[in-house]
Design a protein around this nucleic acid. Structure first.
Lengths: 231, 231
DNA sequence: CCGGTTAGAACTGTTGACAGTTGACAGCGG
DNA sequence: CCGCTGTCAACTGTCAACAGTTCTAACCGG
């Protein structure tokens, strides 16, 4: 039983880096749910390594905002308060609004055409599977890629991952599908006409809707800017 | 000689965290210049600890963008290409432009009054010391603090630190002092009149000037968006 | 029955040693 | 003189064990 999960890290590279990838996936998959502690000896032996490389991976994942490390108590899959989720949506706004500006300046028409195609295709697919809209995440990923700034892209994807983790604290399905799709189309239209100010405004509004949806789905009913909830 | 630098970490907390703070300061102080490798055994013994906690600190600092870790070759104080510096200024733009929006919505008049006071005071101090304008960094720090978003603030300060490290690769003094001061005043004026769009535009222009100044001071003469330089 | 106390178990923080890789340099062949 | 190769030292990656802290729960007094 010592290589049950260990089989996942039989590739090349250092144990530490492979472990980082494996644990990140376990967190985002929900294999290790938010709030759960990572038992170092148990996890290390499950992965077939020792605690040294495991701890280094933990440090990196903590820096990414996926783990919370408390001295002498361990590493926990991160949980989020309403305030923190709100702040993460601010981050996404900052990133993607600026990305929209960059795209209007830099992206060529072909790239924007591909983005357009992606949106229309996912729209058609959505009509089939009726309801669910998982491609939302992909749309934002593609959007960020078009900005041509790798640093910005990585930071934004990190924020996206944290929000994804936060949403996994609730099982509620949001299904803002149809509305989101329409907003995506509007954003692409603004980008293609190189109307930066409109694109920025539309991105902001879109993420504002997503923010409200996420906070509602997580049971954070009201303004997270002052009080905490769930009494 | 085993506790020369070790005296710096005689406080409480874990070795790993204290080491992280010490090394961060050594990097930003210029004690360890960009490009230099951190010899683990030498640094550990200089700090009076073993390699384990040191390596954990290194992982965190790498996540902050202050170190570059290469497998089997070591951890190096990060160096920056023109492209990366350009991307970091994009990050600052994204952060501070959005911060300006938040401030217009959230900050109260007292806070903005204090920011105004800070700018006028530093302006007077600058007339004395004639030329240098170190409070630029502090202005941006205060600005970010007023946005009321701790996550955004930390991310922006990280980007600021990376830019500071990048600038330490060159000894050239920029001294955009007078112009920067004027731009700060204009930004504060826009914030106080709650004119978000103007504030955002002024922040962008201010950082665009800073970007050009930084790239020029580092000898990156032209557009970093395509070619690399220093042949 | 309940709160506080106190051993003991479990776990994290740290260490020193071992193993595998990288980089440098001397020696050799051309 | 130059390039290649093989050896060796230095260093990073990893491990297993020790030390100190936190959590658990049994125990005791009220």
């Amino acid at each position: 039983m010592s290589d049950e999960a260990g089989a996942a890290l039989t590739r090349d590279g250092t144990f530490s880096r492979r472990t980082e990838v494996v644990i990140r996936e376990m967190i985002l998959d929900g294999t290790i749910p938010p709030g759960e502690r990572l038992n170092e000896v148990a996890l290390a032996s499950a992965l077939g390594i020792s605690r040294g490389p495991l701890r280094e991976a933990i440090q990196r994942l903590a820096g990414e905002g996926l783990l919370t490390v408390i001295s002498h108590r361990g590493a926990f899959v991160r949980t989020f308060e309403a305030r923190e989720i709100d702040e993460l949506y601010d981050m996404r706004c900052a990133y993607e609004m600026y990305a929209a500006r960059l795209i209007c300046q830099r992206a060529d028409d072909d790239q924007l055409g591909e983005l357009q195609s992606f949106v229309t295709e996912t729209g058609l697919a959505m009509d089939d599977s009726n309801g669910r809209y998982p491609p939302d995440r992909d749309f934002h990923r593609r959007l960020l890629a078009l900005a041509g700034n790798a640093t910005l892209e990585r930071a934004a994807l990190d924020a996206q991952a944290q929000i994804s983790l936060a949403r996994s604290m609730s099982a509620k399905a949001p299904t803002r599908a149809k509305a989101a799709l329409g907003e995506h189309e509007a954003i692409v239209a603004a980008l293609r006409s190189r109307d930066a100010e409109t694109a920025v405004r539309l991105v902001q509004e879109h993420l504002e809707h997503a923010r409200r949806g996420a906070l509602a789905a997580l049971g954070f009913t009201d303004d997270p800017r002052k009080g905490n909830e769930t009494p």
